[in-house]
Design a protein around this nucleic acid. Structure first.
Lengths: 218, 218
DNA sequence: TTTTAATAAATTGTATACAATCTTAATATA
DNA sequence: TATATTAAGATTGTATACAATTTATTAAAA
C-alpha cells in the first residue's frame, strides 16, 4: 500500500467537490480556505491548484485567488469536437489490434455501466464511462493519445456538471448505454467507418442534450 | 512590465537547458541542485518540476529525484502521428476562416524562418517553427486544440534534441522551409486535402530524418 | 460630490525548517 | 560467502514564517 501524497488527496477532493457541486462554476477559493477545509498547509493545496489550472478546471489569478472554471458554450463544443477527433483516431488505431479478450473486457464494462445506472450510483457510472471512452486509446498504446483522451473526458464531466447540465437526471445516462454498445459492436465487426460514426453520434448526442438543458425553461 | 514568477523562470531555464543539451536525456537532477544553480529555494523549482512532468519532459520519482525524459523511438512516432491528426484537424477548421491578413502573417513567418536559418539562429528558428505549426489552430480559435498542438510541438523539439537527432545540423531545417511553404500554398487555395497531405508529408519527413540519424553509423 | 493619494488588509510567492520516506551502506547472522 | 538486519544518508513532502504584490479602505484634496 503506497501512501498517497497530500497534494494528490487535495487534487482529488477538490475535483470531487466540483463533481458534487459543493464548488460551483466561477466560485472564488483561496489556498488558505481550502487548506483549512482539508486540514492541510497551503503547500500541497498550491500544488493541487496548479495541476487543476493546467487541466483547465481552475483559473489562477495572481494575488487574487483561484476560481473554479466557468465554461462557455463555445468551450464545451470545442472540447466535444476535439474528443470526436481523438477518440475516432484511437478507434482507428485499435480496431485491428483488439483481441477477443479486449472485447470481453469491453462487454464487461458495458455490463458494469448498466448496473451502476440501475443502482443510481452516478459517481460509479462516470468512472466506468471514462474507462469505456478511453479503452480504444489504451489498446492503441499511444500514451500521449491516452492521456489526452482521459483529460478531455474529465474536463467534459466537470464542465457538464458545473453547468448543471448532465447527470443531474439519469435520462442522459440511460441514452448513452446503447450508444456505447453501438461503438463496441462496430469495433467487433472491425468496421472503422461505423465505429467512427457511432463515436461521433454519441458525442453529439451528449452535446445536444446539453444544449436543450441549457434553455432557461428546463 | 509584469514581473515573472521564479517558478516560471525556473521552468523556462530548465527547458532551455534541455534544448541546449546542458541537461541530457535520462539525467538525474534534484530540487536542491537546480535550486543552487538557479539561486532559488526549492519551492519554485518544485513547481517547475511538476509542470515539466505534466508535459512529459521530466519524470519524477518520489524520494529519488527527477529525471530528464528519455524518449523511445515508439514515443517519438506516437507524438508525430498525433501531431498529424491534430494539425490536420486544425487546418480543416481554419481553411475557410483564413483571411488575406492571415495569409500575409503566415508569409511573414515563413520569411522570418528563412532569415533565422540564414543567421543560423537555431533557437529563433525553433520559435518561429512553433508559431507556424500552431497558426491554423490559432485561427480555428479552439483553445484546447491550440494548447495541445503547442504542447506536442514543444515535446517534439525537446525529444529530438535530447536524442541528438535534429537541429544539430542545419540540413533538416533547410528541408522544412519549402515544406512549410507547401502547407501555406494549399491553405491559400482552400484545398484542405492538399493541406492535410502536406502536413502529413512534412511531419513524416521530419520523423524519417530522425530514424536515419538514429543509426549508429551516422 | 468626485477624484486622488495614502494606508491597511488580504493573498499569493518564496525561503526555510522539519518530518517522512526511500536508498545505500554497514553490520550482524546463518 | 550470502543473506538478512540495522543504521545512516539523501531526497522529497509538508508546515510555517516572511516578503512581495495586489486589492480594498480610508482620508484628503479638488
Amino acid at each position: 500500500m503506497i501512501k498517497q501524497k497530500n497534494e494528490d488527496i487535495a487534487y482529488e477532493k477538490i475535483k470531487r467537490a466540483m463533481m458534487l457541486k459543493r464548488l460551483v462554476a466561477g466560485q472564488r477559493v483561496t489556498e488558505e480556505w481550502v487548506g483549512n477545509e482539508l486540514k492541510m498547509s497551503r503547500t500541497p493545496i498550491r500544488a493541487a491548484f496548479n495541476r487543476l489550472e493546467n487541466e483547465g478546471l481552475m483559473e489562477l489569478v495572481p494575488h487574487r485567488g483561484a476560481f473554479v472554471c466557468n465554461p462557455s458554450d463555445k468551450e464545451l463544443e470545442d472540447v466535444f469536437n476535439l474528443r470526436i477527433v481523438l477518440e475516432s483516431y484511437a478507434a482507428e488505431l485499435a480496431v485491428h489490434q483488439m483481441t477477443e479478450e479486449n472485447f470481453q473486457e469491453m462487454d464487461q464494462l458495458l455490463e458494469e455501466e448498466r448496473k451502476a445506472y440501475e443502482k443510481k450510483d452516478y459517481e460509479e457510472f462516470l468512472r466506468i464511462n471514462a474507462q469505456i471512452h478511453a479503452y480504444p486509446a489504451r489498446v492503441a498504446q499511444n500514451k500521449f493519445l491516452l492521456q489526452e483522451v482521459e483529460k478531455l473526458n474529465q474536463w467534459s464531466d466537470c464542465y457538464l456538471i458545473l453547468r448543471d447540465n448532465f447527470y443531474s437526471t439519469p435520462m442522459n445516462q440511460a441514452l448513452s448505454i446503447p450508444e456505447h454498445q453501438g461503438v463496441v459492436t462496430a469495433l467487433k465487426k472491425r468496421d472503422i467507418a461505423a465505429a467512427k460514426k457511432a463515436i461521433e453520434a454519441h458525442m453529439l448526442s451528449t452535446l445536444n442534450d446539453l444544449s436543450e438543458r441549457t434553455s432557461i425553461f428546463n
